[in-house]
Every structure is written in C-alpha cells, then in structure tokens.
Design a protein around this nucleic acid. Structure first.
Lengths: 176, 176
DNA sequence: CTCCTTTAGTTGATCATTCAACCGTATGCG
DNA sequence: CGCATACGGTTGAATGATCAACTAAAGGAG
C-alpha cells in the first residue's frame, strides 16, 4: 500500500523535490509544536484574563503606539490580520470596554482605535503571565543559537511571503 | 507614556523575567512568520485543491496509517485537534466524498475514519504542490543547522506541553 | 452480577473568522 | 471641475471551531 509521505517517491506528475527526512522532521515538529503552543497560550489568556490571543496581539500593538492608538489599517498590517477581522475584533473589544474608536482627524475615511484605561489595566494584568508562559513553553527550551536561528528563518519567511518572493500564481505560471 | 513591551520594566506584581531584546525579536519573527505562513499555505490549498490546511493534515495522517484508516481519537491525538473538531471536520470531508466512517470492529464506542479512493486521489494531486510551497516558503530560507534548531526547539516545546512539564495551574500553585 | 466511573464520539448552540459586497472619502486624470 | 478609480473601513451571511452536554459502550470494583 503506497503511503503519502513527505519524502522522495514517484508521486504526481510534477518533477518535484520532496522533503528530506531531516527537513520533514523539522517541518512536522514545527507544525505540531506550533499547534500546541498557540492552543496553550490562547487557552491561558482566555481562562485567566478573558482575552483571546489575537485580542492580546492587538492590545500589545496599541500599547506600543503613540497615544496608544493606531489606524485600523495600520493595526491590520502590523498584526497581519485582514481588515475585516480587525473590524470585528475591535468591535468586540469596544463592547468589552478595552478600546474606543474615533474618526481620523485628517482623513475622513479613517478610523483610529485607541486603548482605554480599562484596556491598559487589562494588558498590565495579562502581560506578565503571558510572557511567563512564552518563556516557559519556548524560550527556556531553546538556547541563544536556537533563538537566533528561529529569528533568522522566520524573518526570511516574512520577507519571502510579504514582499512577493513567493507567489503561487507566479510560480504556477513559471511551471507552465 | 509607558509602553507595554516584552522586555524588562516594572510591570505587574509578579517577579517576572521579561524577554531580552534577542528573545523578543525571535518571538515576534516567529509569531508574524507563522501567521503569514499558515495563511499562505491554507489559501493555496483552498484555492487550488478545495482543501483547508486542517483537512490536508488529516488526509496526510490517514494516508500514512495502515489501510489508510484511523480511529477518531487516534486522529485527534496525532493532529492535536479536539475530538469535537475532528468529528465536524470528518463529517464535512465525508460529505465531500474524501473519507468514510465505519463502526469499530472490536470496540462498540469507536468509529474508524478511512480515506476513500477519491480522497487519496485528491491528496496525490495536492501533496506535491503543497510540499513545494513549504519548500519555497520555509525550507529554502533556512540552512541545515537552522532546520535542526527548529526541529530540536519545537520537539522540546511538544515535550513540555504534551507531557505536562508546563502546567499553568501547577505553576500558579507553585507561585502561591 | 450489578452498578458506577471512564471512555468514545456526537450534537447543537455559540463564537470568531472569512468573504464578497457595500458605502463614504480621497485622489488624480482629462 | 467632473468623473472614474482607488482607498478605508464596515456589514452581514456563511463557514469552521469551540464548548458543554449528551448518549452509548467498556471496564472495574464490590
């Protein structure tokens, strides 16, 4: 029985390079580890602080911005979330009292989201616990070289995906 | 204006170690890179093959199993998905004709999901393209040492989270 | 053997995200 | 100046995931 595995075999018509066993192990560990890590961090935030991980990311970005405020599009860009997602998430956070929206002063199209005092207090409460979880789950099981490799690799991933060096439509055309 | 940043400051009552700048950069690159990578891989599978990333993961696990079949609980464990999620996802895949469910022969509680010929054909079609995307987006922007670091770190993450060495309730009790 | 606890999987309601369409505003070209 | 295009953000329906509760089957203790 032929099994699909992500290393060399005569699968498909495409002259494709499959992953080596080492590449495969790295990929699988990354996928499973990331699934567990995100679920763990999200569950802890929700149970202890009533925040989801995306809400936490948004609050971090707002807290770092001048006047704790960002345009919706800037917020979407910095989190790499869709504008629709940010609109829905900010609406929920506004209902919870963590954020308020105001019209942009110099661009009638724009909306600025800024963090309320309640939101800031919530982040102050949640951040130390969250960072501790990140440390225990990831930072403490890696050494400095490992972390530098992660930083370098995922910076390269960002470069490739964000700046169009990996374009599936383009690569499909090249193969044609 | 005090900004929340993930490195040392007098935030919170907990005697917490914040992340160093290097740790912070690794963490941020990982979070943003992972968000982009998952969105990219999921979008490509959906647009080109009508599969979501979780559905693809499930199909890979089934294809690797004896007789291309797994119990629902085994499937949930191997993907690190909840049983409820697996039930809903398998129901959708069954409606699409990629999977069939049967009663377990020697345990009346159990249900076995196995891949149909149509499902297998779909995976054969999708796998080379998906692997190529993984190669281009991640493997090609890392060297062998980087990949070994990723494998080691995320294996450690899995160990810590899956085998109870990071237990938020326990760590909270220890701090009390 | 009976009964209680645990396991396996499902169900349906709710929530969060995605998607396409929409509306209002800004910009730039003819 | 008017109009067409692009931008910014929102909306609501559809989809997928989560959650708590549920049912059926298995196992073990008394």
């Amino acid at each position: 029985m032929l099994k699909i595995q992500l290393f060399p075999t005569s699968l498909g018509s495409m002259a494709t390079e499959w992953l080596t066993p080492d590449q495969q192990r790295a990929w699988r560990a990354y996928i499973v580890g990331t699934t567990l890590l995100m679920e763990h961090l999200d569950r802890e935030l929700r149970e202890n602080h009533g925040l989801s991980l995306p809400e936490y990311e948004i609050m971090v970005r707002l807290s770092e911005a001048d006047d704790r405020a960002l345009r919706m599009a800037e917020l979407a860009d910095s989190c790499n979330y869709s504008r629709s997602r940010v609109t829905h998430t900010i609406a929920r956070m506004e209902r919870a009292g963590f954020v308020e929206r105001r019209q942009c002063a110099n661009d009638g199209r724009g909306v600025v989201a800024f963090m309320t005092e309640a939101g800031y207090a919530k982040l102050v409460e949640a951040a130390p616990v969250h960072v501790e979880s990140v440390r225990r789950a990831l930072i403490e099981v890696a050494n400095d070289e490992d972390l530098e490799a992660i930083r370098r690799v995922f910076s390269n991933v960002i470069d490739g995906l964000q700046h169009g060096r990996v374009d599936p439509l383009l690569t499909a055309a090249e193969s044609a």
